[in-house]
Every structure is written in C-alpha cells, then in structure tokens.
Design a binder for these strands. Structure first.
Length: 516
RNA sequence: CGCGGGGUAGAGCAGUCCGGUAGCUCGCAAGGCUCAUAACCUUGAGGUCACAAGUUCAAAUCUUGUCCCCGCAACCA
C-alpha cells in the first residue's frame, strides 16, 4: 500500500478560525479521504502555530499566560475540525516538545554546515505595530505601510540563514519541476519573482528584548527563533524527522502541501531551500488555493467581514430543520464545488443557499428520497436483482469513473463534482423516461424491481464518489440503502458490487431552504 | 515598455493550444409529469465572444495594435 502525506499550514492561534482556515482543511480532508478510498495510506497533518510577539500581546490582552492562551487557541481549531469532520491523523503544535527539539536541531545542523551567520540588520521599525519594513516599502507608503505612522530606522544584530547561497539551485529545481507549484499561475509567479529579484538571506532570529515568546535560539540565549522558520519545520518534525527515522523515511517527502496563496513564497522559496540545506528531499508539490471574498472584498479582520465557520454552521443548521450534518456537508460541498481550488471565490449566504437548494436538495436529496419512497411504496422495502445498468447509464458510468479520478488527482474538486452531478441528472431523467408510475398501474412488478435496483445501485455509486467531499451525507445514503457495512473504497465503484438493498428511509438528506 | 492572469447571454464559468453550426450551471418564461423536498423532465427567450485592423473560403479561436479589470513586486505567522 503506497502512502500519501499531505499537510495544511499551521494556523496562527492569535485569532479565531475563519472561512479560509476551514477551506484549507476541507480541501485537505477531502483529498485525504479520496486517497484512502483509492487504497492509499494517507497521513494528514494539521496543527497550530503558537509563537510570536503577537500571541504574547493577545495573551496579555486576554489576561492570561501565553501558554494558557495558546492551549485555548489550539482547542478552538480542534473543535472546528471535529465539527467539520476533518479526519486529520496528527495535530502538531509548535509548542510541542518534540517540535521544539527538532527546530533546535535543524538550526544547529545548519550552523555546522556554515549556512547560518550573525550580522547587523538595518530596517525601519514601527513601534505601535511592532513590525519591520524595508526602505522601499516605507518610501512607497510614506510611513508604516500598515498604520501610516512614522517609522524609525533601527539596527540590531541577528542570525541569518544563507538563502542566497541556494538561489541558483532553487531556480534549476523549479525549472526542472514545473508541477512543483500548482496551479500554474502561482508557479509563474514564483519563477517571475526569482527572475526579477535576487534572494537576500533570511533573518531567522528575534532578540528576546523585543520578542519574548518563541523557541529559544539554540546558539544564543538572547534570541528566539523567527516564527516562520520555526513553523515551516513542522512538516518534517510532525512525521518524526530526527526523532523517529523509520516513520520519517516512510512518509517523507510530503506528497502535497496545501496552502493559501498569501504564503506562497514561504513554501516555494524558503522551505525548499531549508530542506536542501539539510540534505532533505523537497516535497513533491505545493498547492496554493485562492481566497474567499465577501461582497467583492478581501475578508479580513480590519474590514470586519469575517465569516466565522462555527456560527455559519449553526445558522445553516437552523435553516435546514436543525440538521447539522446537512449544514456541514452543504458547507463543504459549496466550498469545493463553487470555485476551482486555485481561484478566488465569492462567498455569500445567497450563493451558499442556492447551491444547497439546487444541487443538494433538488437534484441529489430529492433523487434519493423519491427512489426510496418508490421502493417502499411498490416493493415493501427490499430490492434485489442482478440487472445490468440501463443504456442511459452506460456511457456516463465509464466517463464518471475515468474523469472523477483524473479530476480528483489533479485537485479539481469542482470538476469532479460536476461529473457526479451530471450522472445524478441522468438518473433523474431516467426515472422520468421510464415512468415507473405507469409500470405500477400496469402491475409490471418485475420491471419495477429491476428498475428500482438500477436506481439504488446508481445512487450507491453516487454516494461512494461523494464520500470524500460529503462523508456524512454518503454515510446516510448507505444507511438508508441498507449497505452501511460496505466501504467507500473506489474498488466498490463498479456496477453490481451490491445486489440487494434493504431500504430504511430517513428524513430528506438536504431539506430545501426557504428563500424569501 | 517590470512580471503574470483575465475581459464570452442577467450572474458565475467552459470553449481559445490543434480556426469550421457559441456550450454548461443558476436565474427567467412556457409546457409536461406525479414516485418526490412547489421537486423532477422538456422546450424557449437572452450573446455584434472588450474594441480596432489584418490573415483566411471561414476567427471567440491565429497576427498586430488599443482600452479596461485583477494578482505579484520580500519577511505581512
């Protein structure tokens, strides 16, 4: 069984989880579930980033110790992941002892190799923002780019990592591996950046007098490790680098790092170079997704248009007759169906409701409901047959099997879902064309039995394909078809894997949401 | 001339590489059906494919020019 190691960024516990965090983890979760369905041993790592002065400040503002604050922050994320059915295999925190140990080791190793040196650092510093800016940034903004206030030029000593030394290597590596960064537009962006700029060495320490909450810099008591340098290392520390070599050997290199497009550079420039310097193979792929906007604007704290996923699920549940599974699945479906993963999306309540109503309630939910209803009404509750698929299904089933895996492997969830829903429409149309109510009047029970078997088997296959994106909905369909002991493995996706169904109808999968 | 992406029905997108009746989802209108969640099925209205010139029997698709929109431009965790 081959492995598939996938990661999300570590989320900064400074603020509450928002739709962007939920999006990344839903992408990663669907991919992990898909790979498992393909019989791969998936290892899905997520976690939280818990160091930095901003966190210290937030802790002080909340009247608690930093450690207590980050504990609470990590819990917040875990709670959300549980709610959203995120099947992560491990949750790493940058305050974990083993992670800290690995970070120190990495820095010591790099120092020994001569890739870390101490030097003076000159920059413009904004005291209220506690942020550093370069000369050109300050010049363009005429002050602090964040708050517009006056900045002061300061100079301090820090430790630097020799990014520049590996610049040529990185360029060569990227040119030789055009699918390392996906989608293409982001690959071009990185290459363009490298072609137009030369890399400067990365400042990887922060003096304790300025930043007190961090991992102690192993070479010097007066410093802590720069948070990004610390955080990136999680991808190897989380699978046992230098602590559990067997596990590390088995899982590394990561098959895919899912990230948001805002942190592209850290993952496509800093990270591969850090690994190169450590003589570790680079990850196979970095996939950057887009942003969700609301009312055409970037969602951000300062604009006050944050979408809180937990609140959203709560409200959505209320609109769905209290069915929380439907809310979670509807949300997951919307995020993956509405927009291709690499592009920006536009989030709105109306768009969400529209998707749920037309795709999930009308097409899918109603199909399941009407089918099971017919089984109950016409046949009692049992369907058993060995009927081949109708000719209307045949081409579709083949296309679906091929295109679904192609799209899922290419992280094209929206296209994969389109394929599944095209088949759902075919099934609905097949009902219309076959007119079972006429067969019933004519007392053609045998035909009805075969026909309903075809519907149930078709729906079972639909549920199997939808499982990575909407696990609870698919489980419900299996339950209602009486095949809950069956797995969602793609090996079960061929026609006739199930020969009889024992129907146990529940409330509609997705109630229609009233729109005023 | 910084680099890159894009401008196709009311909305969101596909089609552009490899020219040849302009397609999908939602919305809208009419009809059908009744197993079903006012659902489902069928049909229809709606597009000078940003603009201009060129190549060609033929251009959304190729060439050139113009206009407009959006990302990126380094430590923002």
């Amino acid at each position: 069984m081959s492995k598939f190691y996938l990661t999300t960024p570590l989320y900064y516990v400074n603020a509450n989880p928002h739709i962007g965090h939920a999006y990344t983890n839903i992408i990663a979760d669907s991919m992990a579930r898909y790979k498992r369905a393909k019989n791969k041993e998936a290892f899905f790592l997520t976690g939280t980033d818990e160091h930095g002065e901003k966190i210290k400040q937030a802790a002080v503002a909340n009247n608690c110790e930093a450690k207590a604050f980050v504990n609470k922050g990590a819990e917040n994320f875990k709670k959300l992941w549980t709610k959203l059915d995120i099947s992560y295999d491990s949750f790493i925190r940058t305050t974990d002892d083993c992670h800290i140990k690995v970070v120190s080791e990495v820095i010591s190793t790099l120092k020994e190799k001569g890739d870390i040196y101490k030097d003076k650092y000159k920059a413009f510093y904004c005291v209220p923002c506690e942020s550093f800016w370069t000369g050109p940034q300050v010049k363009e903004a005429d002050g602090c780019p964040e708050c517009k206030r006056k900045v002061e030029e300061i100079e301090e000593e820090n430790y630097f990592f020799k990014l520049s030394k590996y610049e040529q290597w990185l360029k060569d590596f990227l040119k030789a591996n055009p699918s390392f960064v996906m989608p293409k537009i982001r690959y071009n962006e990185v290459l363009g950046f490298l072609n137009n700029n030369s890399l400067e060495d990365l400042c990887i320490s922060r003096p304790k007098k300025r930043v007190s909450w961090g991992i102690d810099f192993p070479l010097d008591d007066n410093y802590v490790v720069y948070v990004w340098f610390d955080a990136l290392i999680n991808y190897i520390s989380g699978v046992g680098y230098s602590l559990n070599n067997d596990n590390f050997k088995k899982l590394w290199p990561a098959d895919i790092h899912f990230i948001g497009k805002d942190i592209l550079r850290h993952h496509t420039i800093f990270w591969p170079i850090m690994l190169k310097a450590l003589d570790i193979e680079p990850p196979k792929r970095v996939f950057a997704h887009g942003w969700w906007k609301k009312d055409e604007k970037k969602i951000s704290k300062s604009r006050g248009n944050i979408v809180n996923p937990l609140e959203l699920i709560k409200n959505l549940s209320l609109s769905l007759a209290g069915n929380e599974d439907a809310a979670v699945n509807g949300f997951r479906y919307f995020l993956l169906r509405e927009v291709p993963v690499g592009l920006d999306g536009s989030f709105s309540w109306d768009a969400l409701v529209n998707r749920i109503n037309s795709d999930l309630a009308n097409d899918l939910g109603n199909l399941v409901f009407r089918t099971l209803n017919m089984v109950e009404k016409y046949l009692g509750s049992e369907v058993s047959s060995q009927t081949t698929p109708p000719k209307e299904f045949e081409g579709c089933l083949d296309n679906l099997a091929n295109n679904y895996t192609t799209h899922m492997d290419g992280v094209e969830f929206s296209l994969a879902l389109e394929e599944v829903f095209a088949f759902i429409r075919v099934i609905n149309k097949y009902i219309e064309d076959t007119k079972p109510w006429v067969l019933w009047k004519e007392k053609k029970i045998k035909e009805i039995g075969e026909f309903l078997y075809q519907l149930c088997e078709g729906i079972r296959i639909v549920a199997l394909y939808l499982y990575p994106i909407m696990p609870k909905a698919s489980e419900s369909i299996y339950r209602q078809l009486g095949v809950e002991n069956k797995s969602f493995s793609l090996a079960e996706s061929s026609w006739g894997k199930v020969l009889s169904f024992l129907i146990n109808k529940e409330a509609p999968l997705f109630p229609r949401i009233d729109v005023d």
